[in-house]
């Protein structure tokens, strides 16, 4: 104890060091949030002139069909990615952890690879896959004799959301794999061994042992997944720019389009506040839901 105190810097020094990241955080997160909130009460169409217009931006937001369509697309992304990213990652982790799999490190490394690539590049790669003339997807369909299924993929407004979600899922599976793997590594091997002696199979081990023991990590994964998908922007921007029409428009892209494409900063700020509030609601709601569901199980 005495030793620790001897090398412990003065409180002043600790505060000074901590102040640097805190100030940066305040300026890059809180200040923009507060200023966006302030601007959202103004009519501000790309110039220094701002006119206070009370709640009219918010009234417009509630009646804006495109915004709510975009919100729906974000929810679609969230659900698809929880199932696709976290779900598939869990299944893959179970497979990689199995005794039958060789070269586990290689699986881990290559699984993680896509999440290190910039989303813009991922968008471009998948643009090439979907390309109707030169893309591998149409080429494959033609090769197996199903030319009738070939189409201009990204121009089909019925499935375009699914098509822009697939690259997102593919990109982040490895990311969640690493998180889940590290959580599983902390489970004592004794538990698995004794369950094996009791005759548990792989599926039973996954559902009745692993999943309950890494519940908190799964919660973190789901929260990260929701937060990430509520602000989805870059790969969709590269692939479709929200099109055709508004078929793949997400909230962040709509905010960008209104702010910079239509130079309507006031309403753009209002959209940003809307995204913030809706994201909090969705994250909070999902956590309450998960807590509720798991509590029921424990009680039972």
């Amino acid at each position: 104890m005495h030793m620790l105190n001897a090398i412990r810097p003065k409180n002043r020094t600790i505060i000074a060091y901590l102040a640097i990241p805190v100030v940066m955080f305040v300026f890059t997160v809180f200040v923009p949030l507060v200023t966006a909130l302030v601007y959202s009460f103004f009519e501000w169409k790309g110039g220094p002139v701002k006119t206070f217009n009370g709640l009219s931006n918010y009234i417009q937001l509630f009646q804006d069909g495109t915004f709510w369509e975009a919100f729906g697309h974000n929810i679609y992304l969230v659900i698809a990615c929880i199932i696709g990213q976290v779900g598939i990652a869990f299944v893959l982790v179970m497979m990689v952890n199995s005794k039958l799999v060789f070269c586990k490190t290689i699986h881990r490394t290559f699984g993680f690879f896509p999440s290190t690539i910039a989303a813009v590049c991922i968008g471009l790669i998948w643009n090439m896959i979907y390309h109707n003339k030169y893309g591998i997807l149409n080429w494959f369909l033609e090769a197996i004799g199903r030319k009738d299924l070939c189409q201009v993929w990204l121009n089909n407004s019925d499935i375009v959301m699914l098509l822009v979600t697939i690259p997102l899922i593919w990109q982040y599976i490895g990311y969640y794999m690493v998180i889940i793997l590290s959580a599983i590594a902390s489970i004592s091997t004794d538990i698995f061994e004794s369950s094996e002696i009791d005759g548990a199979n792989g599926f039973q081990k996954a559902v009745y042992i692993t999943l309950p023991l890494i519940k908190n990590t799964m919660l973190v994964c789901i929260t990260l997944c929701i937060a990430g998908n509520m602000k989805a922007f870059d790969n969709i921007y590269v692939m479709t720019k929200g099109g055709p029409g508004t078929s793949s428009m997400v909230m962040a892209m709509y905010g960008y389009q209104v702010s910079f494409g239509q130079s309507n900063m006031g309403y753009g700020s209002c959209i940003s506040v809307g995204i913030f509030v809706l994201s909090l609601l969705v994250i909070g709601g999902s956590q309450m839901l998960i807590n509720y569901v798991t509590r029921e199980k424990e009680a039972a």
Binding site: K45, N155, S157, G242, G243, P244, G245, T246, S247, Q257, G261, Q262, S263, N264
Partner: peptide
């Protein structure tokens, strides 16, 4: 004004797909 063209251009893309 950019707002007018942004809205027209987005709609036109749907129109050229026969959806509007």
């Amino acid at each position: 004004n950019s707002a007018v063209w942004s809205i027209l251009n987005t709609d036109m893309q749907s129109m050229m797909n026969g959806e509007l």
